[in-house]
């Protein structure tokens, strides 16, 4: 554990909490892509199956359980509790275009050809593209509420901090995780355009039409 890794995890947690609290307090999930949130729940589910097989640390276990619980709570709020406010007409990104290549890639490139390892790889690849339905929705409607942009900022920052963590670990431990690093860099690149708009235009984002 180093400062970049800890800051990355905190940033990830903050992002998820911002989104959950926004939906809970406004009793609305307008402007939020339910499809992206389902993909994130799938990411956590397939990655954290090792909760049942190996014990790493109390921190590791607690964080995994928290991320799983919060991601399912978010999906529940969008599709059940506040489904009247769900903007399904603009949440139309075809997720099969993400899932099919990601499933294929996880079978081709993995650390071991076992169910758990393939699912772990699937989750890493899927995480890198899971935000695309949300970004697509913002492009389609041409706007995002400021609180939604804060969510995206912290979510992007999390993987960017993980990159710093990987650089740090490579230099201090000589350790690197090729699949996670490549996917993490790809994931962060998707946020660059958003980061630019966030910084230059301020919180509320309107895409040029």
């Amino acid at each position: 554990m180093n400062i970049f890794r800890l800051a990355g995890d905190v940033s990830h947690l903050v992002a998820i909490l911002i989104l959950l609290m926004k939906i809970w307090r406004s009793k609305s999930c307008a402007g939020i892509s339910g499809r992206s949130q389902v993909l994130f729940a799938l990411v956590f589910t397939t990655r954290y199956l090792d909760l049942f097989t190996v014990y790493i640390s109390a921190y590791n276990t607690v964080m995994k359980v928290v991320f799983l619980a919060l991601s399912y709570a978010t999906v529940y709020l969008i599709y059940m509790r506040f489904r009247n406010s769900y903007d399904s007409e603009n949440d139309t990104f075809r997720v099969e275009f993400l899932l099919i290549p990601v499933i294929g890639l996880s079978f081709l490139e993995n650390y071991a050809f076992t169910p758990l390892e393939i699912l772990w790889t699937f989750s890493i690849f899927l995480e890198s593209v899971a935000i695309m339905p949300q970004l697509f929705m913002i492009t389609k409607t041409g706007e995002a509420e400021s609180i939604t942009t804060h969510y995206l900022f912290f979510l992007g920052l999390y993987r960017a901090l993980y990159i710093a963590n990987w650089v740090w670990r490579y230099h201090t431990e000589g350790f690197y995780d090729q699949i996670a690093i490549v996917s993490g860099v790809v994931q962060t690149i998707f946020y660059c355009d958003f980061f630019y708009l966030y910084v230059t235009r301020g919180e509320e984002i309107r895409t040029p039409s």
Binding site: V54, N60, F175, Y176, D177, Q178, I179
Partner: peptide
């Protein structure tokens, strides 16, 4: 290239 999976990262 050496390939290792990180087990402790989230």
């Amino acid at each position: 290239a050496k390939k290792t999976k990180s087990k402790d990262e989230l």
